[in-house]
């Protein structure tokens, strides 16, 4: 991989870090190809090194940042936006703790350059509840104790809530599939399954807000 000059100035940090990582390769290539196409369309000029100004739309709000072009979305959310609900655990796309939604799809924000998230709708754990009103998945995570230390919880919830966006009547296997990339070391998975299935039921009953 050459860097910077021939590719819009973007240091492919995520790509370099993840290249050769079997588990993450497919998703990674998808994103990289997509991102490359986007960049080529937008500009071939060199960006960085040094901070550049970008605007991201996070939880419906436009926010301006001065960031290194190599910064991942996870870093920008946590360090620049002070939104620390999104966790960094492996920093290479193998644990899903950093899961956010981009244009309605789950992505690992540690594998996504912030630059690539420009012009997209980013949703983080902080934006899932509507004001004081928790998302049904959040409510049921509390009710079913689908957390222990809680460090995987935001990513886990983003994966499970996203499933319910796509599938209103998930089976147990659907839930397992949806959070199959989310690692939990405390071993809370059975409660995550219960909570998500309960949330699906709650949303079907019309009590949900999503």
């Amino acid at each position: 991989m050459s860097n910077r000059t021939d590719r819009g100035g973007l240091s492919r940090r995520g790509f370099l870090k993840g290249a050769g990582v079997a588990a993450a390769t497919t998703a990674l290539l998808d994103r990289s190809v997509e991102a490359l196409a986007q960049e080529n369309k937008e500009s071939r000029s060199v960006v960085g090194p040094g901070a550049v100004a970008i605007t991201l739309k996070v939880n419906g709000q436009h926010k301006d940042f001065q960031i290194e072009p190599s910064a991942t979305l996870a870093e920008v959310l946590r360090v620049h936006a002070d939104m620390t609900g999104t966790k960094i655990v492996c920093d290479r796309g193998s644990c899903s703790a950093c899961t956010v939604w981009i244009d309605g799809k789950t992505v690992c924000s540690c594998m996504t350059l912030a630059m690539d998230a420009r012009g997209r709708e980013i949703k983080t754990i902080e934006g899932l509840a509507q004001g004081e009103h928790l998302h049904p998945v959040q409510e049921q995570f509390i009710e079913h104790d689908a957390m222990q230390c809680g460090f995987c919880t935001p990513g886990m919830i983003m994966s499970c809530a996203n499933l319910l966006e796509r599938n209103k009547q998930p089976t147990l296997d659907d839930v397992k599939q949806a959070c199959s990339g989310n690692l939990c070391r405390c071993g809370t998975y059975p409660r995550v399954f219960e909570a998500t299935l309960a949330a699906a039921k709650q949303m079907k009953g019309g009590n949900g807000n999503a």
């Binding site: 939104m83 620390t84 609900g85 999104t86 983080t124 754990i125 902080e126 899932l128 509840a129 928790l134 959040q138 995570f141 509390i142 104790d145 957390m147 809680g150 919880t153 935001p154 919830i157």
Partner: peptide, 8 residues
């Protein structure tokens, strides 16, 4: 629980 599920 609320603090943990909201990222707070």
């Amino acid at each position: 629980g609320r603090a943990k599920v909201t990222g707070a």
